[in-house]
Design a protein around this nucleic acid. Structure first.
Length: 862
RNA sequence: GCGAAAGUGGCGGAAUUGGCAGACGCACCAGACUUAGGAUCUGGCGGGUAAAACCGUGGGGGUUCGAGUCCCCCCUUUCGCACCA
């Protein structure tokens, strides 16, 4: 750019078109955005990642930035805009920093809403979904998000879902997909089964007022529990994830180490056994009853000839259900009933009563516990209420020799310590006792050490239409037979009657259901359930790396180049379901040898919700902000910029209509400045900035470099886009402040040019439309998208003079201005000359001087 | 009950390592320009005072020359988990 050695740029004020400038030029966002929108539609491939994944030696570092793909519900909402504005800013920033960026988008397009809409509006789900995708894609484009649409993935298309089926066959082949009749969660509104993960406080995740009921159904399950240990262990590796999400996943997996112990039912001819799970087998000599969940299979036997007991058990079940519906199972009043039967403690042969209790849950552990009132607060409560024996078997022995054992013995001890009253195990530490007792149980065949998880296998069968058909066939002769790979995809038929009957709609399509057995060729029936849509989203991001592959889900090389995802961005509501299934799928694919990474996502980011008028936006509350309306009124840049400016991205953001108004003003301010100060035709425009600048010019230059530093630091170090934008606003304010000097040529034109170019570059990730317009106004012809991010010069950013606050005894009393590199002596000397400092310290002695270089001086006086 | 995050002007929010509390923006007030202003530009804007003093980051204590920031206790809000045996 430097062309001539003559450095001082001069132009006569009359040369500037702003001599009589029209101050009321308004920034016409619609005109500018429409212009660029049309160009970008034409140049869509601009956003495509460089094809470096085919084994060629990479020339750039890759960066995979991904926002969670949306469900095509009809229209984007403001939460989407916020999510994508973050991702797009990041993608653009990384492009400008020279990375090979993959920034794709797709559609999680199977699922219930399409069916419900179809029933309501009498439109086939496919049409409804396609129309929504078209609309939302148009919205995304209008918002200016730079997606590589050549990699678009739509999960409801056979070219995608056939690979769901392919994966299912692989799971089946490896013994990780199985079918079993089981009690399942059924939502009567959805008319389908829900995964455990989709049950919230006993209610359906979609219908918060609809209690989930239990039904017996034949279901397909994926053995995610085989990976429970690894899923748990590898959480430790995810240091790029928020702690909150990691904790939620840990809780969800819910690992618990203990022992399974069998108690024989006394005097029972059938040899019935109650298996309990306990983490405190060491306290088993203190077990004074066995407690069964009301739904425990043995209970039915006990109540068969005992109506009174049966009625009590029914009561307990009702109480549990009520508490679950209220989402308050933790506060249920403990109640129980004695069955009159006895169980035998296998360690000492003691007979203890068998009770049924409402605080014992059928779906955790074995649905039966040994009750040790002296060492478990729940059992303690229960025993007090029903006057059951409380027997102390552990003393809290401290390692501190000075500490004596509490006397008289406590009735209740939660801590571990040393065993008493436990026969041959007495005097052992709890830790040793657990080990020895588990070993003895195993030797004698009445139990073993065991680990249980809260995590259950993933039930993926759904009795609905709009999903991936499960590629299985039932033959009278050969039983369950997988569809051969070569016959995939099993196509989802169109024109299906999807009215809700409780049975899968596909059962009513004879040409779908009736088929031949792939093994024997005889008549057979197709599986008519479809897959949970969380299957679709468990691996879609791999498909982006090789979206058109028609002989594999993706090419391993492509996936290896791009994975793991460098930055994944989405709502915290997916912290458990989607993210845990995705991790599971990745580990499975790794075990199949398809990929090498253990985890799909390096850095995970959960953005906050968008709140309006103190509440989450929802149609019911009527506080929804429509992105279309915002784009129409203020433009896409304003909508995006505001969603980034109003709060740091990880926090909930309060949407205020007046706030976006301020952003619109800011964009106009930027536009007008450049309108009046862009003179690319001037011969001095592209010269280098002179070295020795007069104070007003130096101030502009300093502010410029300080701004670049702040925006860069806040962007990559902290993701504080709100302060990035504030910093840019300050720069613009400073440029307006320098207008008089610029008008008098006190600021050389090359510096004015540089400031505007850097301003456009820094705005590019946040407000791409305006940034591109500015870039053009500044006479630049190259692509802004991949123009280099501006660099700051630390020397030029440095202040020559600084103001040092002076405190006396910690209270601010004055300020002194000194050269930036001033020695302490000078600062103290000037400080002591300050009137206010003087008056605050007269008649007193300075006992201490604390000088923090460049920051502050504190004089301690007495 | 357990765990996490948060609490700062009228509002959204800044303050990155313990160092000028309130950057930036909204709202409000004033001025300039103007036939006009819901445009634009400039200035003001925590409370308090004539001006100072002084008071101010949910409350109370503490450490420190110095605390929004660190420690202890408490309160409130949001989120997650919840008789998990």
């Amino acid at each position: 750019m430097p062309q001539e050695e003559k450095s001082e740029a001069t132009i006569a004020p009359a040369d500037r078109p702003d001599a009589n400038r029209p101050d009321d030029v308004r920034y016409d966002a619609q005109r500018v955005e429409t212009k660029w929108f049309e160009r970008w539609q034409r140049d869509a491939l601009l956003y495509a990642a460089d094809p470096e994944s085919d084994g060629a030696k990479p020339t750039k570092k890759k960066y995979y930035v991904l926002e969670m793909l949306p469900y095509p519900s009809g229209a984007l909402h403001i939460g989407h805009v916020r999510n994508y504005a973050i991702g797009d800013a990041l993608a653009r920033y990384m492009w400008m920093n020279g990375y090979n960026v993959l920034h794709p988008m797709g559609w999680d397009s199977f699922g219930l809403p399409a069916e419900n809409a179809a029933i309501k509006n009498n439109t086939p789900p496919r049409e409804w979904t396609q129309a929504n995708i078209a609309n939302m894609k148009a919205q995304m484009n209008r918002l200016g998000f730079a997606y590589d649409w050549s990699r678009e993935v739509t999960t409801c298309l056979p070219e995608y879902y056939r690979w769901n089926q392919w994966f299912f066959l692989k799971f089946y082949e490896k013994g990780l997909a199985y079918r079993k009749k089981s009690k399942v969660n059924w939502c009567s509104q959805c008319c389908t089964v829900l995964a455990n993960e989709q049950v919230v406080n006993g209610n359906c995740w979609r219908h918060e007022e609809t209690p989930v009921v239990q039904r017996d159904l034949e279901q397909w399950f994926l053995r995610i529990t085989d990976y429970a240990e690894e899923l748990l262990r590898d959480i430790d590796k995810l240091d790029g994830w928020p702690d909150k999400v990691r904790t939620m996943q840990r809780n969800w997996i819910g690992r618990s180490e203990g022992a399974l112990i069998d108690f024989k039912v006394a005097d029972d001819a059938t040899g019935a056994v109650i298996r309990v799970f306990t983490t405190r087998v060491d306290t088993i000599f203190g077990a004074t009853s066995v407690q069964l969940a009301p739904q425990h299979p043995l209970v039915a036997g006990f109540t068969r000839y005992n109506q009174v007991l049966g009625a009590s058990v029914e009561q307990l079940i009702a109480e549990q259900r009520k508490a679950k519906e209220a989402g308050d199972i933790g506060a249920i009043e403990k109640r129980g009933v004695n069955t009159g039967h006895y169980a035998v403690n296998p360690y000492n042969g003691e007979r203890i009563p068998i009770w049924v209790a409402n605080y014992v849950l059928m779906d955790y552990g074995t649905g039966a516990i040994m009750s040790v009132p002296a060492h478990d607060d729940r059992d303690f409560d229960f025993a007090k209420k029903y006057k059951l024996e409380i027997r102390l078997v552990v003393l809290p022995v401290s390692t501190d020799p000075d500490e004596t054992i509490a006397e008289p013995p406590l009735p209740f001890v939660a801590e571990e310590g040393m065993l008493i009253n436990s026969g041959r195990f007495s005097n052992l530490s709890c830790e040793d006792a657990k080990r020895k007792m588990s070993a003895e149980a195993e030797q004698n065949g009445f139990g073993k050490a065991a680990v249980t998880y809260r995590l259950k296998d993933w039930g993926i069968s759904r009795q609905r239409y709009w999903g991936t058909p499960i590629p299985m066939v039932y033959c009278e002769k050969d039983g369950i037979v997988p569809v051969p790979e070569k016959d995939l995809p099993v196509l989802l038929p169109d024109n299906v009657d999807i009215t809700l009957t409780g049975a899968s709609p596909l059962t009513r399509v004879p040409e779908f259901v009736n088929t031949t057995c792939p093994k024997c060729g005889g008549p057979a029936r197709r599986e008519s359930d479809t897959m949970d849509t969380f299957v679709d989203s468990s691996w879609y991001f791999y498909r982006y790396t090789d979206p058109h592959n028609d002989h594999a889900p993706f090419d391993s090389k492509a996936a290896q180049y791009w994975f793991p995802i460098d930055q994944y961005i989405g709502g915290v509501e997916h912290a458990i379901l989607h993210l845990i299934y995705s991790r599971f799928w990745t580990k499975f694919m790794r075990d199949l040898g398809m990929i090498r990474n253990d985890e799909p996502v390096e850095h995970q980011f959960s953005q906050g919700m968008v709140i309006k008028d103190g509440a989450k936006m929802s149609k019911n509350r009527g506080n929804v902000v429509s992105p279309d309306e915002m784009v129409e009124r203020y433009g896409a840049d304003a909508a995006r910029l505001y969603s980034l400016f109003a709060a740091p991205p990880d926090r909930d953001m309060d949407w205020q209509d007046s706030g976006i108004e301020g952003i619109r003003k800011f964009l106009g301010r930027v536009y007008r400045f450049v309108l009046h100060h862009a003179h690319p035709e001037h011969p001095d425009w592209n010269r280098s900035v002179p070295i020795d600048l007069a104070p007003p010019a130096r101030a502009v230059q300093r502010k410029l470099h300080q701004t670049i530093k702040r925006v860069t630091d806040d962007f990559q170090g902290r993701w504080h886009f709100n302060t990035c934008i504030s910093a840019i606003m300050e720069l613009v304010n400073a440029l307006y402040g320098a207008e008089e000097a610029i008008g008098k040529n006190a600021v050389p034109l090359p510096l004015v040019a540089e400031a505007q170019r850097d301003l456009a570059l820094m705005l590019a990730p946040f407000a791409p439309y305006l940034a591109h317009e500015l870039w053009e106004m500044l006479g630049e012809t190259g692509s802004l998208l991949k123009a280099p991010w501006p660099k700051y010069d630390a020397v030029l950013a440095k202040e020559e003079e600084i103001e040092i606050p002076v405190q006396v005894n910690g209270k601010l009393r004055g300020r002194v201005v000194v050269p930036a590199d001033a020695a302490e002596e000078l600062v103290v000397e000037r400080a002591l000359a300050d009137e206010k400092v003087k008056s605050a310290s007269t008649g007193k002695q300075i006992v201490k001087k604390i000088y923090v270089p460049g920051k502050l001086l504190n004089l301690v006086v007495r």
